[in-house]
Nucleic acid binder design. Sequence first.
DNA 1: TTCGCGTTTGAGCATATGCCCACGCGTTGG
DNA 2: CCAACGCGTGGGCATATGCTCAAACGCGAA
Lengths: 316, 316
Amino acid sequence: MAAENDKSRLDDAARAGWLYFIAGHTQDEIAKMLQVSRASAQRLVSLCLAERLITFRLEHPIAACMELAARLKERFDLVHCEVVPADPAAPQATAGIAERCANLLDATLRSETPVIVALGTGRAVRAAVERVTPIDRPNHQIVSLVGNISADGSASFYDTVGRLADRTGARHYPMPLPFLMSSEDERNKMVRIEPIAKVKAVAAKADLRLVGIGQMDQKAQVHIDGFVTRDELFEMMRLGAIGEITGWAYDSKGRLLKAGTNKRLTSIPPEVPAKTTTIGAAVGAAKVTAIAAALNGGLINGLITDETTAQAILER
Amino acid sequence: MAAENDKSRLDDAARAGWLYFIAGHTQDEIAKMLQVSRASAQRLVSLCLAERLITFRLEHPIAACMELAARLKERFDLVHCEVVPADPAAPQATAGIAERCANLLDATLRSETPVIVALGTGRAVRAAVERVTPIDRPNHQIVSLVGNISADGSASFYDTVGRLADRTGARHYPMPLPFLMSSEDERNKMVRIEPIAKVKAVAAKADLRLVGIGQMDQKAQVHIDGFVTRDELFEMMRLGAIGEITGWAYDSKGRLLKAGTNKRLTSIPPEVPAKTTTIGAAVGAAKVTAIAAALNGGLINGLITDETTAQAILER
DNA sequence: TTCGCGTTTGAGCATATGCCCACGCGTTGG
DNA sequence: CCAACGCGTGGGCATATGCTCAAACGCGAA
């Protein structure tokens, strides 16, 4: 009896679901057709969903991305996650994620109330800034998390802060320091001087941090860009470094190293775990380990990546 | 440019559809996520549907039935159509359709305003009547479309009208005539006498006609039940009869024959094309041709059948 | 540059939906 | 046998949705 009842109820649920989703009738119409109250029709439709009698299939590449993003968000407890379709023609292309980062920046900067945006390193971040829609927001503040003077004394071409400020009229705070100081003592001295302390103070209040994620291997961007020497890189690798965010090297568990270049680094250190919305932006097979570690260590609480990379992170 | 735009628009539509149907967000939430107005979010979801980016799949046997019913309704312009799941154990079982017929009768009779229900022949109709929920509706009227006296002079066991009246307290009008008269003249005389004319008048005002559909072959129910002789049956078949409704034989195009037993038949003739809601109830491979012809000829404008039969009708 | 045309946008409203509550019916346990 | 319980039901309300319409926008032509 109970089974019979359940069966007929599920039949009705299926009927209702069919009429609702496939035939496109309203629940009122369905109620009349099935000779029940509208409330019951609603329950049947709802039951149809609950019992998974009906499934939705999205026939579009985006679907997989949405799925991956949802899983990443769930798994790593992220406040924000976006996965863009992989570009088969250019697996390393940052264009896709840069567009999304720009969109995120646009959304943040659109606010009328003053916001503080902190920027880290990375090609994606730089490309994102180029794509931000110009908008006049003089009350916003843009702050750099990393020194913009490279080893040779020239200003780094990663002048993302300046670029973004240009587009928004916001006040900006580049960090007028070399990436690395020559010693721990000197670093500690420098970060206490007034202009730097000011930058730190602003950064500490940031509403959004957007940072690149670098892998620490022979092709590490920090080395390629000349911020750390080959020897420094190898030392950090020996110490267990597998990734870096704004220069701060961390190991495979996402723990910041307390040695090597990290002791001489002028960059503003990440919060651990991230409390401020801190979005990592990175793609590529080489970065999978670094991204996963950053996620596990709570160095970031948001991620923008592509389909291939997202897949790899989840499959680790 | 246009293509690029369209593509990104479809991407957004897919995103919106995913968020709406799969993640279960409201359109308001989606609007915020995608940085558009709620109205636009609604447009995106709607576009997602229109572009068939998303498809619904109902994982339930009922789904196929609903689909078949919709196609039958469309193809033959029916006012009502139901297809019940085929019972693999008993392909000829009328239980399923009887239940639906009973449901239809229930629904009709539940009305407080007086209704007139006309009943034809058929096992499904008889079984349906047995399943009708008793309800007190003394103002309704139940009228028979066929004579209830069989050839041997006894009252037919198809006393569906009486049974249904018992269950509803409705006034009922059996047709106190033999199924066939001995000649056309006699038939014409009989149908003009007062009690019969009254039945005809009531039947003409019926709100619902529920009729069985019989095939005209060697296993024709009208012959098995003794209403027509073997010779009469064969004559009708020779004249092109392939089916009958309330005894009225028709050909493969659904045209009523103007010869043979039809000239001596006392049953109330079908409207052609059916204007009153006239529901045919029948299942079985043997009846496919007869049902299809009745549909094509407009002898019925509604159908209750099973999955197998529905499939066969559509594949003809 | 300005004008006009077609498209897209967001406010607002009528409608549909989801959900809470009190009720009634059938079932179970004492 | 009755009371307590669970479950489904329908009414009613707050919210979400679909749609209309006027305004803004972009785009191409003069």
